[in-house]
Amino acid sequence: MSTAPPPPALEFSRVTKTYPGQPQAALQDLTLRIPRGSRTGIIGRSGAGKSTLVRLISGLETPDLGHIQVQGQPLTPATLKQLQARTGLVFQHFNLLAQRSVLHNVTLPLELRGTPKVLRERRARELLQLVGLEALAGRYPAQLSGGQKQRVGIARALVTDPDLLLADEATSALDPETSAGLLTLLTELQRERDLTLILVTHQLEVIRAATTHVAVLDQGRLVEAGETASVLRQPQSAVTRALLDAHRPEHPLLAGETLHHLTLPDLGAATLDRLARQRARIVRAEAHALGVDVWLTAPDHVPAAELGRTGLGGTGLSGIETPRLIPEVSA
């Protein structure tokens, strides 16, 4: 039964990077393995080293010390071109070319590789269909909404059929509902296309909603890494706990918002009360882990304290989904 495990999708070995003129290293002795086929979140505050990590993976910077392996191959100037083709990038501000149509934005990576026009346009149309934008192929980026632009960004990132999809704050510039839709799309694409998805973010919501693994960075160092559920349930570092504290969803949940990997104490009594009133659907962690989603609907007006008696209290909720349209609760 035992076969050699495939190499990790991405491996950082003791990587240090300092920018010229900066007193502190942007990344300090970073060792990190991103499992193949995972959806790994990389979270940290600004200045944690997230952008440097992205720039190193995409080949825009090279490490001062240590080395990086992509799909088991060392990232060097000689392998850069080839590895860039196997890595798709999605950006916070989309970085679409304003003077190119949607179709020709998606064809660009293939054009840079010299793929013939007919082939690259056919391929781009397939990808646009995948992200639901085939009807907008002839439009220009300025004519699209933020969410649509990011779908074009995703289509462009996938057009070279990469193994690794790297999304750098891909939903940070978008409203929560659009964000949730994009995270769902990314998650589906990761599963269907057997990708390794890396989500770089400062938002804990993104980690909760879409990742299987998480790495926490702070001041250029890795402070914690592991499976998302266990890191969020039992954070080992003060930095992670601070992130969790800052993101307790005491704010009203938005329509359609899905929270994953929550535990009941995360939520607080008032939120639970409201969730119960809103007929929030609650997913059991255990069932989720087996790949079977069991949805339990909390009955009307169940006080928070009683949610525990439904058998969900205490340890593991893997998700709470609020209904898309929340009716006004009349007094």
Binding site: L60, L80, N95, L108, P109, L112
Partner: peptide, 13 residues
């Protein structure tokens, strides 16, 4: 915009 240029570079341009 610098982001567009960096995107192209990261695509291998």
């Amino acid at each position: 915009p610098g982001g567009v240029v960096e995107a192209a570079r990261a695509m291998g341009a």
